[in-house]
C-alpha cells in the first residue's frame, strides 16, 4: 500500500480537485484506489459523490466500524473516507490528540483502510498544519501542487523547508514531485513562472503541467469526474500522463528519461 499525499503551501491551487480526479483516472487504469480526506475543509468527498454535511469521517468521533461499513456501502469508482463535518471545538480537540500522540493518525488509518488497497490518495490542508505534518509522515509519494503565478513561486521556499523537515531522519525517503496546475500556456507570466520553477525544482517538477480548462469546474458542478465528463480534453490527457508519472519508480524513470531525452 502506497500513500500519495497532495500538499500545497497556499490555498486554492486545486489540490483537492487534482487528488479526486487523479484518483478516478488511477482507478480506471486498474489500480485499487482509496481517497482519504485529512483536510478539515472536508471537500474531497464533494468530488466523489459524498453528500455534504456528513458527520462520519476520519477525524476523531466516528468509530472504525462505522467507517468500514460506510466504505463498503459506497458504489463510486473511488471509495472515499471524508474528513467529517466538525465544529471548531472538535477540530481543536482532534489537533491536540494528534499533537499528544504522534502515532494516532497512522493507527486510525490502518484500522479502516480495506485490505487490498493499492493506493491511498490523501488530501491535506494548505500550509503548515498539524494534519499535514502527520500525513506527510506516512506518505510514500508527496505531490506539491502549484499555480503558475507569482504567489505560488514566492511560497516555494516555505514548501521546500516543510518537506525538508519531514524527510529528515526518515529511513525510507518519500518520492517528492511538484505539479503545475491550471497552467495557461498563452500567458507569458505563466510560462515564465514555469521556467523559473523548473530552474528551482529541476526534474522534480513533472514535465506535464495540467492546463486550465473550464470543463474541470463544469464536471464538478455536475458531480462527475472530469475524466468521465470530457475524456478528450487536454486537461484529462495531462492528468493521465501525470498519473503515470507519479507511479513510475524512480529507477525506471531515470532510465526512461535518459532514453527519450531529446
Amino acid at each position: 500500500m502506497k500513500f500519495i499525499a497532495f500538499v500545497s503551501a497556499k490555498g486554492g491551487t486545486g489540490r483537492t480537485t487534482l487528488a479526486a480526479n487523479l484518483g478516478v483516472i488511477l482507478a480506471r487504469a486498474g489500480h485499487r484506489v482509496l481517497a482519504l480526506d485529512c483536510d478539515p475543509q472536508n471537500a474531497l468527498g464533494t468530488h466523489l459523490g459524498i453528500p455534504p454535511g456528513l458527520r462520519l469521517g476520519i477525524a476523531e468521533g466516528s468509530s472504525p466500524d462505522e467507517i468500514i461499513e460506510y466504505l463498503t456501502a459506497q458504489r463510486g469508482e473511488v471509495p472515499c473516507i471524508p474528513f467529517g463535518t466538525r465544529d471548531r471545538d472538535d477540530l481543536q480537540q482532534a489537533e491536540s490528540t494528534l499533537l499528544a500522540d504522534s502515532g494516532w493518525l497512522m493507527r486510525r488509518v490502518l484500522d479502516v483502510v480495506p485490505s487490498g488497497t493499492e493506493l491511498v490518495l490523501v488530501d491535506t490542508p494548505a500550509g503548515e498544519r498539524v494534519w499535514t505534518e502527520h500525513v506527510l509522515e506516512m506518505a510514500n509519494v508527496i505531490v506539491g501542487v502549484h499555480l503558475p503565478d507569482a504567489a505560488c513561486f514566492a511560497t516555494l521556499p516555505v514548501m521546500a523547508a516543510m518537506l525538508e523537515r519531514q524527510c529528515r531522519g526518515r529511513e525510507l525517503k518519500p518520492a517528492v514531485w511538484h505539479v503545475l496546475n491550471q497552467m495557461e500556456p498563452r500567458s507569458k507570466l505563466a510560462r515564465d513562472t514555469e521556467f523559473l520553477m523548473r530552474r528551482h525544482l529541476g526534474e522534480r517538477l513533472v514535465p506535464c503541467p495540467v492546463p486550465r480548462d473550464p470543463v474541470v469546474g463544469e464536471a464538478w458542478a455536475q458531480q462527475l469526474p472530469v475524466a468521465l465528463h470530457s475524456p478528450t480534453t487536454g486537461a484529462v490527457a495531462a492528468l493521465r500522463e501525470l498519473s503515470e508519472h507519479l507511479l513510475t519508480p524512480l529507477v525506471d524513470l531515470q532510465r526512461h528519461t535518459a532514453k527519450v531525452c531529446r
Binding site: P185, R186, P211, R212, D213, P214, V215, T232, T233, G234, A235, V236, A237, A238, E241
Partner: peptide, 14 residues
C-alpha cells in the same frame, strides 16, 4: 507528438 489545442473560450482538446 502529443499536442493540445486550446479553443477560444479556454477549453482544451488533447
Amino acid at each position: 507528438l502529443p499536442a493540445m489545442v486550446e479553443r477560444s473560450y479556454g477549453n482544451t482538446v488533447a
